[in-house]
């Protein structure tokens, strides 16, 4: 059975259908890609999958539980984390602090956590390990404001990893990145994939086809195609496109 499964998701905003019969299944240990043109409904789909919006119809199951309509924080506690297309970082604080405040052990304390952080060596160690994992070793004390765009992306993923998720959703990680930073990010995701099940929305097809085990193509609020990168590449129109030239 798939670790995560969405069946018959339907979502309407007023007169507009944004999701129509979305069916998706993500296997444990895999990296699943979601791609689609602008306005196809990818982000709405993510928001429904991660609990931000409740679907009008359909169900979402994670590891045996029906989590449809659960509040986002409850879903996070259950083992699903999400990194955002628009970054949610505290610019005035260091990379390390950003990860520390996202740790469940720290979060469960008072709201004035930042003053107590320095004293908590266990939390610091844990955050350092995460930063190391996302390739930010040596950058722990740097203010987020001074990090490069690529480093901030990596940090955003680090923050999402702080809850030690079993399933990580990543929304357009390459948005705004140059070639070099995109290549480093690909390495980072390749590495994360060894321990975490990942679902990634991505615009950059080269990036996605290089990393994903399976890809779902979303358009008109529906899954219009689905398969391994090789299967999708077999389509004659895909072979004729720029995508066809990808190794």
């Amino acid at each position: 059975m798939a670790l995560f499964e969405a069946r018959g998701l339907h979502k309407r905003f007023g007169d507009q259908v944004v999701l129509e019969e979305i069916n998706l299944a993500f296997e444990a240990g895999s990296l699943s890609g979601i791609m689609g043109p602008n306005g196809a409904g990818k982000t709405t789909c993510f928001n429904v999958l991660t609990g931000r919006y409740r679907p009008d119809r359909g169900s979402v199951r994670f590891d045996g539980d029906d989590i449809t309509g659960w509040a986002p924080h409850r879903i996070v506690r259950r083992g699903i984390s999400r990194s955002f297309q628009i970054m949610n970082l505290f610019d005035e604080y260091s990379a390390l602090d950003n990860v520390v405040v996202a740790l469940p052990s720290v979060r469960s304390r008072s709201f004035d956590v930042l003053h107590a952080i320095d004293a908590d060596s266990e939390a610091q160690d844990r955050a350092e390990t995460i930063l190391d994992r996302v390739g930010l070793r040596g950058r722990e004390r740097v203010n987020v404001r001074s990090l490069s765009y690529g480093e901030r992306r990596a940090l955003e993923i680090g923050v999402a990893l702080a809850t030690d998720p079993r399933l990580l959703f990543v929304d357009e990680p390459t948005a705004g990145l140059g070639t070099g930073a995109t290549a480093r990010l690909a390495e980072l995701i390749q590495e994360l994939k060894r321990h975490t099940t990942i679902v990634m929305i991505e615009h950059d097809m080269r990036f996605l086809f290089g990393l994903a085990d399976r890809i779902s193509v979303i358009h008109w609020g529906q899954v219009i195609a689905e398969g391994t990168p090789d299967e999708l590449r077999e389509n004659p129109w895909v072979r004729r496109s720029n995508l066809g030239g990808l190794a």
Partner: peptide
């Protein structure tokens, strides 16, 4: 629909119509 030979989506859309 926006058809663009460069992005490969034509193939997916046509498969969807067939489906």
């Amino acid at each position: 629909p926006q058809f663009n030979t460069q992005d490969g989506y034509i193939g997916f859309m046509l498969d969807f119509f067939r489906k």
